[in-house]
Structures are given as structure tokens and as C-alpha cells.
């Protein structure tokens, strides 16, 4: 069994004016000019390189880090590379107020935990780059810098099962 609590250093994706970024689309996450790349290990270096102010994200990110954004993260195309690129960097979870529908499926099926934080925009000022966030995926309880507690949505059962198995393929083998 994998740990059900994830802890990592936080990257809060904000616009140049400091507001939490909404509607980060799949072209901002993984631009269409890289779609010919098929080796997942090569995808990490391009993560967020079309998001204004975050072009150098791949150089700064470390395995285990957690990414935070506003509403509708991963809207747009169905490209799975927009999930794969974060997994290539070892990102341990993405936290947002809401996610694009297909992005959410892609992440679940790839075993990347997406944590939905209702009303995140309203409390976004409390989260800073470099802070430590711990999230219990089963209960949704989140703790910032070992101090402040928040309640996020827990992962659904199917989300948890696929995460525990590793990904959809591994999960499929457990139920077949």
C-alpha cells in the first residue's frame, strides 16, 4: 500500500499580479509544439513552459513537490502529456479549486493524485511558494506548515484504488 498522506513543497501558480491562476489549459502545461515527443522522461523539461511567469518551472521543481492552481486546471485538449510531464518531474500531487474533466480522468488513470480544494481562491493568500503541505488523500484533511488545517475533498474510491495500484493498467490487473 502506498502512503495515503502526501507531503511536499508547494508551488503556488500565480499570475504576475499575484492572483491564483485559473483556466491553465493544456497548451500552457504542455505546448502543442512538443506533441511529437513520445518518451515520458523527455516531457518533464517542458512542463508549464508556456505559462507566463512559470517558463522555468521544470528547472525549479523537485521530486515530491506539490503544485497548486485555481479553477479549471487542465482545461482544453485531451492530451495526456499534460499529466505525464508532471509525473516525469516527480510531482506528487496537484491541488486546485477544480479541474478540466478529461484532465481529471487522465490524472486518475495515471495514478497522479488530483486534490480538489473547494473555495481555494478565497483562501489562496494563505499559501506561499516553498511552504510545506501535507494532504491525507483518504480524508481530504490538509495541513499547511504543520500548523493550519484545511478540508479538501477526499479522493473517490475508484481514484484511490487506481492510485494504490499505481495506474489504470496495474489496477486492471488487480480486478481482472
Amino acid at each position: 500500500m502506498k502512503e495515503t498522506t502526501i507531503q511536499g513543497r508547494l508551488w503556488v501558480l500565480t499570475e504576475p499580479d499575484g492572483a491564483l491562476y485559473d483556466d491553465i489549459d493544456t497548451d500552457m502545461i504542455f505546448h502543442n509544439r512538443y506533441l511529437h515527443i513520445t518518451d515520458v522522461a523527455q516531457m518533464g523539461q517542458y512542463a508549464l513552459d508556456n505559462l507566463k511567469g512559470w517558463e522555468d518551472f521544470a528547472k525549479k521543481a523537485q521530486p515530491g513537490d506539490i503544485v497548486m492552481a485555481g479553477r479549471n486546471f487542465g482545461s482544453g485538449s485531451s492530451r495526456q502529456q499534460a499529466v505525464d510531464c508532471f509525473q516525469a518531474l516527480g510531482i506528487s500531487a496537484i491541488v486546485a479549486e477544480s479541474f478540466g474533466a478529461i484532465y481529471k480522468r487522465n490524472a486518475i488513470n495515471s495514478g497522479l493524485p488530483l486534490v480538489t480544494f473547494p473555495n481555494l481562491t478565497a483562501i489562496a493568500a494563505q499559501f506561499e511558494n516553498g511552504a510545506t503541505l501535507a494532504i491525507n488523500l483518504e480524508t481530504g484533511e490538509a495541513v499547511l506548515n504543520d500548523e493550519t488545517r484545511f478540508q479538501a475533498d477526499p479522493l473517490s474510491q475508484v481514484q484511490m484504488d487506481i492510485y494504490q495500484a499505481g495506474n489504470l493498467f496495474a489496477y486492471g490487473k488487480t480486478v481482472l
Binding site: G76, S78, Q80, N106, N109
Partner: peptide, 25 residues
């Protein structure tokens, strides 16, 4: 495995986009 798959709802179908891992599945 294309995000504009909902198009086929114009014919009264339930039509939704998915990702490539699950398309393979």
C-alpha cells in the same frame, strides 16, 4: 481520445472525451 468528442451528442448519443491511457485500456 479527443476533447471535442462531445460533438456526437448532436445525434442523441452520449459522447465524451477520454485520455490515451484509457483508450488503450
Amino acid at each position: 481520445s479527443d476533447s471535442h468528442t462531445p460533438t456526437h451528442g448532436a445525434f442523441g448519443a452520449f459522447s465524451a472525451g477520454i485520455g490515451r491511457t484509457e483508450a488503450a485500456a
